[in-house]
Computed example of a mutant assay.
Amino acid sequence: MDARYEAKYHILEEEHWWFRSRRHMVYSIINELNLSASTAILEVGCSAGPLLLKLQQAGFTNLTGIDVSETAIALGNERGLKCISVMDGAKLAFPDATFDLVIASDVLEHIADDKLAMQEWARVLKPGGKLIVFVPAFQHLWSNHDVVNHHFKRYSKVELKTIVAQAGLNIKRASYWNFSLYFPTLLVRKLQNSVTSKSALPDDDLQQLPTIVNSILTNLVKLENKLLTKVNYPVGVSVFVVAIKA
């Protein structure tokens, strides 16, 4: 991602509604897996480690995080995380069958060879190990935000399931996420794409919001997350898969 955007990202990733509600969903999925405290967990694209810190506080003791950004890892070290390091998410320096759980939230879309990356994540899973992967949904939601983030693509549920299955993993669940904001986002994207000059510098959607707005959006998506434990959504701003290595 662009350096200017990354600096803002690290300021907002702890409290911004998007990151808080997505971590809430990831953590909800982890809770459903009924893992022991000693479960070997790898987070690919851990940034400065807010999810790892949450897992650490919950009692998990065997945590590993990697990120391609030296800035992110340095900040995570400052926050007290010593289990993180700089590494390419598509070229993991771990032996086969190292981890019980691999988590990758909004990482795959940053990697040119997404099939290779998925094969790597499957490779380091132990037999019976699980994968949780989130990616941005639907190419028709593509915007300047994707450009600033250096995304290669957005995914449909079918596309994500196909890549996961091709890596030899059995899909246990697949759903869209952030349903209620899909239609407003679609409308905004259509308006943005119709008026944005091709010569204009791309801008991102990550902005500091008033506290009350940030709180409302956080609680809205967290409510959706609770419903998502019982149903799958037909559309959403993101899509996720939970899979297992046979």
Rank of each mutant, 00 (worst) to 15 (best):
R123E: 11
Q207D: 08
M118S: 07
S194Y: 01
I171V: 11
S194V: 00
K198Q: 02
L191P: 07
K172P: 03
H150N: 08
R154K: 07
K157Q: 10
P136S: 11
P127H: 11
I103W: 02
D204I: 00
V107D: 00
S194E: 01
T196I: 02
Q119H: 10
R173F: 04
Y155C: 01
A122F: 07
I212T: 09
E120R: 05
P127A: 09
H145M: 04
F152I: 02
E159P: 00
D106V: 01
P210Y: 08
V158H: 15
S197G: 05
V133D: 05
Q208A: 13
K153Y: 00
L125N: 15
F138H: 15
Y176M: 13
A165N: 12
S194L: 06
N193V: 06
T162S: 13
E120V: 01
R189Q: 14
H151Y: 09
N178H: 07
A165T: 13
F138W: 13
A104N: 10
H110E: 09
V148K: 03
I171Y: 03
S180F: 15
I103N: 06
K190F: 04
L131G: 02
G168H: 01
L191I: 15
L187P: 00
H145A: 09
V135F: 06
K153P: 01
A122V: 03
V133A: 05
T162Y: 10
D204W: 04
G128V: 02
D205R: 11
S199Y: 12
G168K: 08
V188Y: 14
K161N: 14
S199D: 14
L141W: 06
F179Y: 14
S197R: 01
E159A: 05
G129Q: 08
N178L: 08
L131Y: 00
R123Y: 03
P136D: 09
K161L: 13
V148T: 02
Q207R: 12
S105N: 14
Y155P: 01
V188N: 12
I171Q: 09
L187M: 04
L191T: 09
N170Y: 12
V133E: 01
V135C: 08
K153F: 00
A174I: 03
R154T: 00
Q166F: 12
A104W: 05
V195I: 09
N193C: 10
A112Y: 07
V133G: 03
T211S: 15
E109P: 00
A137N: 07
R123G: 07
F183M: 06
M118L: 14
V133L: 06
A112C: 08
V148A: 03
V158K: 15
I163K: 09
Y176S: 13
N178F: 12
L201Y: 10
A174Q: 05
L169E: 12
I103S: 07
D205T: 02
T196H: 11
Q192E: 13
S194W: 01
T196M: 11
A200T: 07
A174V: 06
K161P: 08
L131C: 04
V147K: 14
Y176T: 14
I171F: 04
Y155N: 00
V135Q: 01
D204Q: 03
N144P: 02
T185Q: 07
